[in-house]
Amino acid sequence: MTTVGLLYPGHSAEDDYPRIEALLNGLNLPIVHTDIGEDAHRVDVLQEMGSRERLAAGVEELRLSGAESVVWACTSGSFVYGWEGAHEQIRALAAAAGLPASSTAFGFVHAARAVGAERVAVAATYPGDVTGLFVRFLEAAGLEVVGNRSSEIVTAAEVAAWDREQVVQLVRTGDHPQAQAVLVPDTALHTVAYLPELEAAVGKPVLTANQVTVWEGLRLAERRGAWSTDLGRLFAREA
Protein backbone atom coordinates (compact mmCIF):
# COMPACT_ATOMS: atom_id res chain seq x y z
CA MET A 1 0.00 0.00 0.00
CA THR A 2 1.34 3.43 -0.99
CA THR A 3 0.07 6.37 1.04
CA VAL A 4 0.18 9.85 -0.46
CA GLY A 5 -0.95 12.58 1.91
CA LEU A 6 -2.88 15.50 0.43
CA LEU A 7 -3.35 18.99 1.83
CA TYR A 8 -6.50 20.18 0.08
CA PRO A 9 -7.88 23.73 0.36
CA GLY A 10 -11.48 23.80 1.54
CA HIS A 11 -14.15 21.57 0.02
CA SER A 12 -14.75 21.56 -3.73
CA ALA A 13 -13.72 18.59 -5.88
CA GLU A 14 -12.00 16.37 -3.30
CA ASP A 15 -14.26 13.49 -4.38
CA ASP A 16 -11.99 13.17 -7.41
CA TYR A 17 -9.44 11.49 -5.13
CA PRO A 18 -11.56 8.49 -4.06
CA ARG A 19 -12.20 7.94 -7.77
CA ILE A 20 -8.48 7.68 -8.34
CA GLU A 21 -8.04 5.40 -5.33
CA ALA A 22 -10.64 3.04 -6.83
CA LEU A 23 -8.76 2.91 -10.13
CA LEU A 24 -5.24 2.37 -8.75
CA ASN A 25 -4.69 -0.72 -6.65
CA GLY A 26 -2.77 -0.33 -3.42
CA LEU A 27 -3.17 3.42 -3.09
CA ASN A 28 -4.28 5.34 -0.01
CA LEU A 29 -4.99 9.08 -0.27
CA PRO A 30 -5.68 10.63 3.15
CA ILE A 31 -6.86 14.23 2.83
CA VAL A 32 -6.45 17.06 5.31
CA HIS A 33 -8.53 20.12 4.47
CA THR A 34 -6.73 23.42 4.94
CA ASP A 35 -8.36 26.75 5.70
CA ILE A 36 -8.92 28.79 2.54
CA GLY A 37 -10.05 31.99 4.20
CA GLU A 38 -11.84 34.00 1.52
CA ASP A 39 -12.99 32.00 -1.52
CA ALA A 40 -11.50 34.07 -4.32
CA HIS A 41 -9.05 33.53 -7.17
CA ARG A 42 -7.25 36.74 -6.27
CA VAL A 43 -3.49 36.93 -5.87
CA ASP A 44 -3.39 38.25 -2.31
CA VAL A 45 -5.99 35.69 -1.16
CA LEU A 46 -4.18 32.83 -2.89
CA GLN A 47 -0.87 33.78 -1.31
CA GLU A 48 -2.46 33.78 2.14
CA MET A 49 -4.16 30.44 1.40
CA GLY A 50 -0.78 28.88 0.60
CA SER A 51 1.06 30.42 3.54
CA ARG A 52 3.56 28.36 5.48
CA GLU A 53 1.43 28.47 8.62
CA ARG A 54 -1.74 27.17 6.95
CA LEU A 55 0.06 24.28 5.30
CA ALA A 56 2.05 23.34 8.40
CA ALA A 57 -1.17 23.05 10.42
CA GLY A 58 -2.17 19.86 8.61
CA VAL A 59 1.08 17.94 8.37
CA GLU A 60 0.95 16.17 11.74
CA GLU A 61 -2.32 14.47 10.80
CA LEU A 62 -0.80 13.32 7.52
CA ARG A 63 2.27 11.96 9.28
CA LEU A 64 0.03 9.93 11.56
CA SER A 65 -1.75 8.54 8.50
CA GLY A 66 1.50 6.91 7.38
CA ALA A 67 2.02 9.20 4.40
CA GLU A 68 5.16 8.54 2.38
CA SER A 69 4.90 11.87 0.57
CA VAL A 70 2.86 15.05 0.91
CA VAL A 71 1.37 17.17 -1.86
CA TRP A 72 -0.14 20.63 -1.48
CA ALA A 73 -3.18 19.88 -3.65
CA CYS A 74 -3.50 23.36 -5.04
CA THR A 75 -2.18 24.89 -8.25
CA SER A 76 -2.83 28.60 -7.82
CA GLY A 77 -1.87 28.63 -4.14
CA SER A 78 1.62 27.65 -5.27
CA PHE A 79 2.42 29.33 -8.60
CA VAL A 80 1.25 32.74 -7.34
CA TYR A 81 4.54 32.88 -5.44
CA GLY A 82 6.53 32.61 -8.66
CA TRP A 83 9.05 29.92 -9.55
CA GLU A 84 11.48 30.59 -6.69
CA GLY A 85 8.76 31.38 -4.15
CA ALA A 86 6.93 28.15 -4.96
CA HIS A 87 10.15 26.22 -4.35
CA GLU A 88 10.54 27.93 -0.98
CA GLN A 89 6.95 27.00 -0.11
CA ILE A 90 7.59 23.33 -0.82
CA ARG A 91 10.91 23.27 1.02
CA ALA A 92 9.12 24.64 4.09
CA LEU A 93 6.35 22.04 3.71
CA ALA A 94 8.88 19.20 3.42
CA ALA A 95 10.69 20.44 6.52
CA ALA A 96 7.45 20.68 8.51
CA ALA A 97 6.26 17.25 7.41
CA GLY A 98 9.60 15.47 7.50
CA LEU A 99 8.59 13.92 4.19
CA PRO A 100 9.16 14.49 0.46
CA ALA A 101 6.76 17.27 -0.56
CA SER A 102 5.52 19.03 -3.66
CA SER A 103 2.51 20.89 -5.02
CA THR A 104 0.08 20.53 -7.89
CA ALA A 105 1.87 23.36 -9.71
CA PHE A 106 5.12 21.39 -9.81
CA GLY A 107 3.10 18.29 -10.63
CA PHE A 108 2.06 19.93 -13.89
CA VAL A 109 5.67 20.63 -14.83
CA HIS A 110 6.84 17.09 -14.10
CA ALA A 111 3.77 15.50 -15.71
CA ALA A 112 4.19 17.52 -18.91
CA ARG A 113 7.74 16.29 -19.18
CA ALA A 114 6.60 12.72 -18.48
CA VAL A 115 4.21 12.74 -21.47
CA GLY A 116 6.84 14.35 -23.68
CA ALA A 117 5.15 17.73 -23.99
CA GLU A 118 7.43 20.72 -24.55
CA ARG A 119 4.68 22.93 -25.98
CA VAL A 120 1.47 23.20 -23.97
CA ALA A 121 -1.86 24.99 -23.96
CA VAL A 122 -3.49 26.18 -20.74
CA ALA A 123 -7.27 25.86 -20.32
CA ALA A 124 -7.96 27.63 -17.04
CA THR A 125 -10.99 28.46 -14.94
CA TYR A 126 -9.13 31.42 -13.43
CA PRO A 127 -9.33 35.16 -14.08
CA GLY A 128 -6.85 36.35 -16.69
CA ASP A 129 -4.26 37.78 -14.31
CA VAL A 130 -4.04 34.51 -12.35
CA THR A 131 -3.80 32.48 -15.56
CA GLY A 132 -0.97 34.75 -16.64
CA LEU A 133 0.98 33.88 -13.50
CA PHE A 134 0.57 30.17 -14.26
CA VAL A 135 1.88 30.77 -17.77
CA ARG A 136 4.92 32.55 -16.36
CA PHE A 137 5.49 29.67 -13.91
CA LEU A 138 5.41 27.12 -16.72
CA GLU A 139 7.73 29.21 -18.86
CA ALA A 140 10.17 29.46 -15.94
CA ALA A 141 10.18 25.66 -15.94
CA GLY A 142 11.21 25.62 -19.60
CA LEU A 143 7.83 24.81 -21.13
CA GLU A 144 6.56 26.77 -24.15
CA VAL A 145 2.98 27.95 -23.65
CA VAL A 146 1.51 28.28 -27.14
CA GLY A 147 -2.01 29.21 -26.04
CA ASN A 148 -4.00 29.99 -22.93
CA ARG A 149 -7.64 30.54 -22.12
CA SER A 150 -9.09 32.12 -18.99
CA SER A 151 -12.68 31.52 -17.91
CA GLU A 152 -12.76 34.47 -15.49
CA ILE A 153 -14.25 32.41 -12.63
CA VAL A 154 -13.55 33.98 -9.25
CA THR A 155 -14.61 31.35 -6.71
CA ALA A 156 -13.82 27.68 -6.17
CA ALA A 157 -17.48 27.10 -5.30
CA GLU A 158 -18.54 28.07 -8.82
CA VAL A 159 -15.81 25.97 -10.42
CA ALA A 160 -16.84 22.92 -8.36
CA ALA A 161 -20.37 23.17 -9.80
CA TRP A 162 -19.24 22.80 -13.43
CA ASP A 163 -20.61 19.75 -15.24
CA ARG A 164 -19.09 17.43 -17.82
CA GLU A 165 -20.12 19.50 -20.84
CA GLN A 166 -18.53 22.63 -19.39
CA VAL A 167 -15.27 20.81 -18.68
CA VAL A 168 -15.13 19.29 -22.18
CA GLN A 169 -15.84 22.69 -23.71
CA LEU A 170 -13.08 24.27 -21.62
CA VAL A 171 -10.54 21.77 -22.94
CA ARG A 172 -11.68 22.06 -26.54
CA THR A 173 -11.57 25.85 -26.59
CA GLY A 174 -8.33 25.96 -24.61
CA ASP A 175 -6.48 23.63 -26.98
CA HIS A 176 -4.03 24.93 -29.58
CA PRO A 177 -2.91 23.16 -32.77
CA GLN A 178 0.75 23.41 -31.78
CA ALA A 179 0.24 22.17 -28.23
CA GLN A 180 1.43 18.68 -27.36
CA ALA A 181 -0.73 18.62 -24.23
CA VAL A 182 -3.53 20.65 -22.66
CA LEU A 183 -3.11 21.67 -19.01
CA VAL A 184 -6.22 22.25 -16.90
CA PRO A 185 -5.27 23.78 -13.53
CA ASP A 186 -7.56 24.22 -10.49
CA THR A 187 -8.10 21.37 -8.02
CA ALA A 188 -11.62 22.74 -7.43
CA LEU A 189 -12.64 21.44 -10.88
CA HIS A 190 -14.02 17.89 -11.23
CA THR A 191 -12.15 16.22 -14.08
CA VAL A 192 -11.17 12.66 -13.15
CA ALA A 193 -14.39 11.03 -14.39
CA TYR A 194 -13.99 12.72 -17.77
CA LEU A 195 -10.32 12.12 -18.59
CA PRO A 196 -10.78 9.62 -21.45
CA GLU A 197 -13.40 11.86 -23.06
CA LEU A 198 -11.24 14.96 -22.65
CA GLU A 199 -8.29 13.34 -24.38
CA ALA A 200 -10.50 11.98 -27.14
CA ALA A 201 -11.89 15.47 -27.71
CA VAL A 202 -8.47 16.96 -28.52
CA GLY A 203 -6.46 13.90 -29.53
CA LYS A 204 -3.59 14.54 -27.12
CA PRO A 205 -2.73 14.22 -23.43
CA VAL A 206 -4.86 16.29 -21.09
CA LEU A 207 -3.33 16.97 -17.68
CA THR A 208 -5.74 18.06 -14.97
CA ALA A 209 -5.07 19.30 -11.46
CA ASN A 210 -6.34 16.43 -9.31
CA GLN A 211 -4.87 13.86 -11.70
CA VAL A 212 -1.37 15.36 -11.64
CA THR A 213 -1.56 15.90 -7.87
CA VAL A 214 -1.80 12.15 -7.26
CA TRP A 215 0.78 11.37 -9.94
CA GLU A 216 3.21 13.80 -8.31
CA GLY A 217 2.70 12.18 -4.92
CA LEU A 218 3.36 8.76 -6.38
CA ARG A 219 6.49 10.08 -8.10
CA LEU A 220 7.79 11.38 -4.77
CA ALA A 221 6.97 8.07 -3.08
CA GLU A 222 8.91 6.32 -5.85
CA ARG A 223 6.04 4.05 -6.72
CA ARG A 224 6.47 2.61 -10.20
CA GLY A 225 3.86 0.94 -12.36
CA ALA A 226 0.76 2.83 -11.20
CA TRP A 227 -1.41 2.78 -14.28
CA SER A 228 -5.02 2.89 -15.43
CA THR A 229 -6.62 3.22 -18.84
CA ASP A 230 -9.23 5.50 -17.24
CA LEU A 231 -6.79 8.14 -15.97
CA GLY A 232 -5.41 9.48 -19.23
CA ARG A 233 -2.08 9.04 -20.94
CA LEU A 234 -0.21 10.20 -17.86
CA PHE A 235 -1.20 6.93 -16.16
CA ALA A 236 -1.03 4.75 -19.27
CA ARG A 237 1.08 1.61 -19.03
CA GLU A 238 4.40 1.91 -20.78
CA ALA A 239 4.80 -0.27 -23.85
Rank of each mutant, 00 (worst) to 15 (best):
M1F: 09
T2C: 12
T3N: 09
L6T: 11
Y8H: 04
H11F: 13
S12H: 10
S12K: 02
D15F: 13
D15C: 06
D16T: 02
D16L: 01
Y17H: 03
A22D: 14
A22G: 13
L24H: 05
N25K: 15
G26D: 10
L27V: 12
P30F: 08
V32H: 14
V32W: 10
E38S: 11
E38R: 12
D39S: 01
H41D: 13
V43D: 10
V43P: 05
M49F: 01
S51H: 02
A56I: 08
A57Y: 06
E60C: 11
E60K: 15
E61V: 14
L62H: 04
L62P: 11
S65G: 13
G66F: 14
G66W: 13
A67N: 09
A67H: 01
E68R: 15
E68A: 13
S69A: 15
V71K: 12
W72S: 15
C74Q: 06
T75D: 06
S76H: 05
S76M: 03
S78T: 10
Y81T: 00
G82Q: 04
W83R: 11
W83T: 04
G85E: 03
A86S: 13
H87R: 15
H87C: 09
E88R: 15
I90S: 09
I90P: 02
R91D: 15
A92C: 09
A94T: 10
A95R: 15
P100H: 06
S102G: 13
S102T: 04
T104W: 11
T104Y: 11
A105R: 12
A105V: 01
F106V: 12
H110S: 12
A111C: 07
A111V: 06
R113M: 09
G116W: 10
A117F: 03
Y126R: 05
Y126Q: 07
P127S: 05
P127D: 05
V130R: 01
T131I: 01
T131K: 03
L133T: 05
F134M: 07
F134G: 00
F134Q: 01
R136A: 14
F137G: 00
F137T: 04
E139N: 06
E139L: 00
A141T: 11
G142D: 08
G142S: 09
L143G: 06
L143H: 11
V145D: 00
V146Y: 02
V146F: 01
I153S: 11
V154R: 14
T155M: 14
T155S: 15
A156T: 12
A156L: 11
A157D: 14
E158M: 13
D163I: 10
E165P: 05
Q169L: 09
R172W: 07
R172N: 07
R172V: 14
T173M: 12
D175G: 10
A179E: 03
V182N: 07
L183V: 10
V184L: 07
D186S: 14
A188K: 05
H190I: 05
T191V: 02
T191K: 09
L195M: 14
L195T: 08
E197V: 11
A200Q: 15
A201S: 14
V202C: 08
G203R: 03
V206M: 06
T208H: 05
V212A: 08
V212R: 02
T213W: 01
W215Q: 02
G217S: 06
G217Y: 03
L220T: 02
A221N: 04
G225A: 13
A226R: 07
L231I: 03
G232K: 00
R233D: 05
F235Y: 14
A236E: 13
A236Y: 08
A239C: 11
